[in-house]
Write a protein that binds this DNA or RNA. Structure first.
Lengths: 172, 172
DNA sequence: CGGCGGTATATGAGTCGTCATATACTTACC
DNA sequence: GGTAAGTATATGACGACTCATATACCGCCG
């Protein structure tokens, strides 16, 4: 049910079509949710059937007719209640993190290489996240910065330890 | 397919039953994945059919017979390949974060109250995460600490701004 | 004018995830 | 002897999600 509420949240900010909503979700990961169009369209229809949004068809200057949705008073009420529900930490669900964790059984040179691969991903994402003054965006920025620092620290530690090659290691 | 690989990863560390695996996943969020037993059992069967794990039945001292799985050489190979796949940042999928982001349209007193609710969640989780010397756990710890600091900073900023009540605000 | 790229909606197959429920074995306690 | 609590496996319904595919409207470029 989260996707519907997230869409409702976007529609309270401003009316939009399914396609618009997808753009907004994709460009701002700080919102905490994203989904494919194939999930967004049926979700909007459910919101419409439930009376949480209204629909206006409009000609598009550059494509097929747009279906523009806007939140109704009932939709705003529903959203408010959803936002007020208690917080909880999400169940972890991140294949990249799982790979990173399993990587710890590899040899240092491999680990360093892949840590730096990850580090670069983070650096790119940090660039993309550089703008924006919402609390959610500030949160995302500090988390990315922290993770970047973590990756660098882990790399450095591995490189420092690595000066002991197999031969030296055997003597300790 | 991630769940199977994560389970395989645990089984390479040590043989275990489905129930054991669930305990291990639940107790260490730094591994990056968790799932219900109702997902774990069928997943183990698929791994068994695929020859990635082997099965040994054992009497349990305190319950019905256990089904203990261990990774086969083919399973280890499969795992290695999976771990070597390229990294990517996960699609955001976090209802709590979405609530937090939407909360920014509420009035400061509400926002402070809920930020502190979230802060307390984080503080509890940080306590649970206090042990462990793997890189993945270190990562989790620094991220939780950063997020805690973020929540406190946002609260403080709101409280500082709040000294301007509606009346004072109107005059500026 | 034919095709390409961007805008826009739509659907279906198949998988993954959640939640509820059932069963069975054991120890511990009343 | 009944039952509660912890260990352990299992299944089914339902909804969420991914991925592939189709259609259509537009302007632009060669």
């Amino acid at each position: 049910m989260s996707l519907s509420h997230v869409l409702l949240g976007l529609l309270v900010e401003s009316p939009a079509s399914g396609w618009d909503l997808k753009q907004r979700l994709a460009e701002d990961p700080a919102r905490g949710w994203d989904a494919d169009l194939s999930q967004i369209y049926p979700s909007l229809r459910r919101l419409l059937r439930g009376g949480f949004v209204s629909l206006k068809r409009r000609r598009s200057p550059k494509g097929p007719p747009r279906r523009e949705y806007r939140a109704t008073p009932s939709g705003r009420r529903e959203l408010k209640e959803w936002v007020a529900e208690p917080f909880s930490l999400p169940r972890p669900h991140d294949a990249t993190l799982a790979r990173l964790a399993l990587l710890e059984r590899s040899l240092p040179p491999d680990r360093v290489r892949r840590l730096q691969e990850y580090r670069n991903l983070l650096a790119d994402e940090l660039k993309r996240a550089a703008t924006g003054t919402t609390a959610a965006r500030r949160r995302r920025r500090v988390l990315l910065e922290t993770e970047l620092a973590w990756a660098d620290a882990e790399s450095a530690a591995l490189l420092a330890g690595r000066s002991l090659g197999p031969a030296e290691r055997a003597r300790t």
